[in-house]
């Protein structure tokens, strides 16, 4: 059984992160910026990449017990990536490999730029190819290459210890549009305000709602009701915008709860139009103003305010 398709919507989660590295990862990244690969002593072993703790016991390691390893090492296992993703370090086919660097007892994961899958084998020797511009990041090693000799060696050393790391994750999603959402969007385009009336408890929900949560009843087209495009402002907040990536507001703005006439539906956090923030109040009679295919906001009708002390409690 396949549900009727209402199309899809594209959306990208794109977050700029910045990570603090702490003492050990920070030392490792600082090392990379200076073309040095560090491991950490863990008992009789050396771990690379280094951790602050013994991963088998959780015990804190001596953060000063860093030792240089490599730069060459041995491939312990490998796979071939024929079509790199946007997140991969190379934009041509490459091997992702577990590499045990000389002097280390654990394996570092990194790319091997071998040119061809035929050049890859377990046990092969590889050495780092350094980037010219290094920032203290795992990709300061552009990739490992077959052989014993590191490539791209220079005299550049970091002036300051590396303590932070940027991380930019970007994932494009294709999300199916729920049937009710699609039907509601059509109604909004036609400047109709629709609701969905639960056949069990008779509560009215916004047009895109999927279920009445009171009796876990699916809401479908047959429960659709046309709602008046007038209502009463029951509650509100005035928001002073804070700045963050993507913020579009600069002046204080209101978000209001609107009890739609002839129903028990409250539409939450709505913008208001032609109602200055200092005049926003409980009880204002409002009518819907249409934007381009959506509700632009609610505008005072000029009718007298509704005087009902319980109105402010109609948040939902």
């Amino acid at each position: 059984m396949t549900a009727p398709s209402a199309g899809t919507v594209e959306m990208t989660i794109r977050f700029p992160y910045k990570r603090s590295l702490g003492p050990v990862i920070g030392a490792f990244m600082t090392g990379l910026a200076g073309q040095q690969i560090l491991g950490i002593r863990n008992g009789s072993e050396v771990m690379c990449p280094p951790l602050e703790w013994d991963p088998k016991t959780g015990k804190e390691l001596d953060h000063g017990a860093l030792v240089e390893v490599g730069p060459a090492g041995t491939v312990v296992s490998w796979t071939w990536v024929p079509k790199p993703s946007a997140q991969h370090p190379l934009d041509k086919p490459f091997a992702l490999a577990l590499i045990r660097l000389d002097g280390a007892d654990t394996a570092l994961t990194h790319a091997v730029d071998a040119g061809s899958i035929d050049a890859m084998s377990t046990g092969m020797r590889v050495a780092p190819r350094w980037k010219a511009e290094r920032q203290g990041h795992i990709t300061d090693i552009e990739a490992f290459v077959p052989g014993e000799d590191p490539q791209g060696l220079d005299d550049s050393r970091p002036e300051e210890p590396v303590t932070m790391m940027p991380y930019n994750a970007e994932i494009p999603y294709t999300l199916p549009i729920a049937v009710n959402t699609a039907r509601n969007a059509v109604a909004l385009k036609e400047k109709r305000l629709i609701g969905l009336r639960c056949p069990v408890c008779s509560r009215t929900y916004a047009g895109e709602r999927g279920f009445c949560p009171i009796d876990t009843t699916a809401l479908t087209a047959e429960h659709e009701v046309q709602l008046p495009q007038t209502g009463t402002l029951t509650n509100y907040t005035i928001i002073t915008p804070v700045q963050y990536p993507g913020q579009t507001e600069t002046e204080p703005f209101a978000r209001c709860m609107i009890l739609v006439d002839d129903s028990d539906l409250v539409i939450g956090y709505q913008p208001v139009i032609d109602l200055p923030v200092e005049q926003v109040r409980v009880g204002v009679r409002v009518k819907l103003v249409w934007g381009d295919g959506d509700i632009e906001g609610w505008q005072p009708t000029g009718e007298p305010d509704v005087d009902d002390p319980d109105l402010v409690n109609r948040i939902y």
Binding site: F15, Q247, T248, R255, V312, I315
Partner: peptide, 30 residues
Amino acid sequence: QSEGNAQFALGSGRGGSLGAGGAFAPYMRS
């Protein structure tokens, strides 16, 4: 929280984010 931006995350990256304070303010008025 400093690794990302909670306000941004709560608003799914769009402008005019209510923030948690904006969402709860009507409750407090009531």
